[in-house]
Every structure is written in C-alpha cells, then in structure tokens.
C-alpha cells in the first residue's frame, strides 16, 4: 500500500495558542481518510497547512513526494481543495468559474475546455452551466465548489467539512459523489465533525481533539482499541416481571451491566451478538415477553467519548 502523503510532526502555534500539536499520520493512496473532531479541534488548521496556505511552526509533510514547506508550488499542482465555505464568484456562471480556476491551475486552450466540460458532466450541471452561480440552489453551489477542486485531476483531494449547514438531500448527494470519486481512484482527505459521515465514508479515521491526534486507524481498529461494549436494548411488555429479569441478567456471565427504564432494558455487553440467544432464553424462562430488540454497536461517537470524556458534538 503506497502512502501518497506522509505528515510528520506538524505543529502550528499562534502566539500562545497551540492550534496543532505534533500531528503525524500517513494517507494511503486510494483511500478515504477522515479527520474527525469537534469544532476548534484543529482540523481546518491542519488541512490549511497541508494545502500550503499556512506555514507550519515546525514539522513537515510530503505529498506525492513534494515537501509542503520546500516545494509548495509543486504540492499545489497535485492537490485539489474544496474549502468549507463556498469560494466562487457569484456573478460568473459555473462554466466561467471553472474556466477561471482551471486557468489558475495552469490549464489552457483545448485541454481546459475539455476538462471543464467533463467536470460539468461529473457534477451534473452541464445543462445549467451558463447561468450565474448566484442563481443556483445551495446544493448546486456546493457541487460547483467541488468541481473546481477536480479540474486539474489532483492526486489528493482535500474536503473541509463540505456538508455543514446544508439540506439532507444535498448532503446525501455530496456523500455519494465522494464515494463515486473514490471508486474512480481519487484519494480523499475528508474533515468533519459528523460521526455518521466519517463512519459511512472512511477507510481510516484520525480522531483529533485540541490539536492532537488522539486515535488513528480503521473504524474496527479504533473501537477495538478502546474496548467498547455493545448495547443490547430490549423492549418488553408492560405487565411483565421486568425487575426479576434485570436481576437475573445482571448476574449472567458476559453481561457488564443491565439497566431498566420504562419498558426497556439496556444491557452492556462485550458482544451483543453472542449474548443475544442466552438473554432471550433467560427472558422466556422468567416469563418476560420481548417485543423488539436493538443492537447498538460501538461507534466513533463512543470512541471519542471514551477518549476525551466529552461528546463529539459539544
């Protein structure tokens, strides 16, 4: 597996404020790597350094073999950037925007025209290409914003929280398009504070908090690392002897905890799948009718909670 980017001990200080403290990780070619963390964690600062906007206080990174501190121009030529806020010219059409940015990337003439047409197709705006961006819906504008990052066929695409503040439909479209791009071979560095997105998209995830990378790996590795428990939730009948069941469950092997509230019993266990059968048998024995069963596997939210003691969405 090739690393397309090696980030090594990046630090960014603003005077007293330590925005990014000694971050190191690799990005493998062809993967979607998510940088997950709450607002203010340092995601944007990190990605800004990697896209050569900011100079690191110390540390370095190589992208496609070029150092961000020593060869920023070369780096810019192979990365694509989709910033969090729309960076487009409202008074120009989508085509004109793409033409301009294509020029900024050094594309000219027929090559440029061809690429612009291709990208317009890719983002599904070929028929509305000549209308001014200011007339577009929010979702359409986002698509143009992404399109700009694709023009020069970058090897690594940076997407900085691309779904903040947009409607569910557009968000769905963006997530799908990221997956499509990845299938076509694009490597993506995706920052977000939405756990569901990181979960849905990523091959690997880096969890970042207060400028530090506190965990990194595939999702399975991460949840295993911190040893989180599954939650098995039973919805039971009203008149059933619930307390009896709860007591019995609490002394069962493999069950860490069993709580009751209203007509639900939450069971904390290492593996919900394994304990499911014994629990149902026990319930039958005691005479509790199980209406429905939920299995909540550990997720990144719980990983974050475990590592920091705070919720991701604080």
């Amino acid at each position: 597996m090739n690393s397309i980017a090696q980030i090594s001990h990046l630090v960014k200080n603003y005077g007293e404020v330590k925005a990014v403290q000694d971050i190191s990780f690799d990005i493998h070619e062809g993967e979607i790597f998510s940088l997950l963390g709450p607002n203010g964690a340092g995601k944007t600062t990190t990605i800004s350094m990697l896209s050569t906007l900011y100079t690191p206080t110390s540390g370095d990174a190589t992208i496609g073999g070029h150092s961000i501190t020593k060869e920023p121009m070369a780096v810019r030529g192979i990365i694509g950037v989709v910033p969090q806020e729309l960076a487009l010219y409202d008074d120009l059409s989508a085509r004109e925007n793409l033409n301009f940015w294509g020029n900024m990337y050094g594309l000219t003439g027929k090559t440029l025209k061809a690429r612009v047409d291709e990208v317009l197709e890719q983002i599904g705006l070929a028929d509305k290409a000549n209308m001014r961006v200011k007339t577009y819906s929010g979702g359409m504008k986002r698509r143009v914003n992404i399109g700009v990052g694709l023009l020069h066929k970058p090897r690594l695409l940076f997407m900085d929280e691309p779904t903040v503040g947009i409607d569910p439909q557009s968000r769905r479209a963006i997530l799908d398009s990221v997956k499509d791009l990845n299938i076509e071979g694009m490597t993506v560095l995706y920052t977000t504070h939405y756990m569901e997105e990181a979960q849905e998209l990523s091959d690997r995830v880096g969890i970042i908090d207060h400028g530090k990378l506190i965990a990194i790996g595939t999702q399975a590795e991460l949840t295993r690392q911190v040893g989180e428990m599954d939650t098995l939730r039973l919805h039971v009948g009203e008149t059933d002897p619930i307390e009896t069941l709860v007591k019995a469950l609490q002394s069962m092997r493999g069950i860490k905890k069993a709580d009751q509230s209203d007509h639900t019993i939450d069971i904390i266990t290492a593996s919900a799948e394994e304990i499911l059968a014994p629990v149902i048998i026990k319930a039958n024995e005691i005479g509790v009718k199980i209406r429905s069963v939920d299995i909540q596997e550990p997720d990144l939210e719980s990983v974050f909670l475990h590592l920091t003691g705070r919720a991701l969405r604080d």
Partner: peptide
C-alpha cells in the same frame, strides 16, 4: 470575504 483569495493561494499561481 468570499474565500476566493484564499483559494487562489492553494493553486499553483503565485
């Protein structure tokens, strides 16, 4: 304000 200036700085344009 628009962020386009910032974006230009991420392109290989000096």
């Amino acid at each position: 304000q628009k962020g386009t200036l910032r974006r230009v700085m991420t392109t290989p344009t000096t």
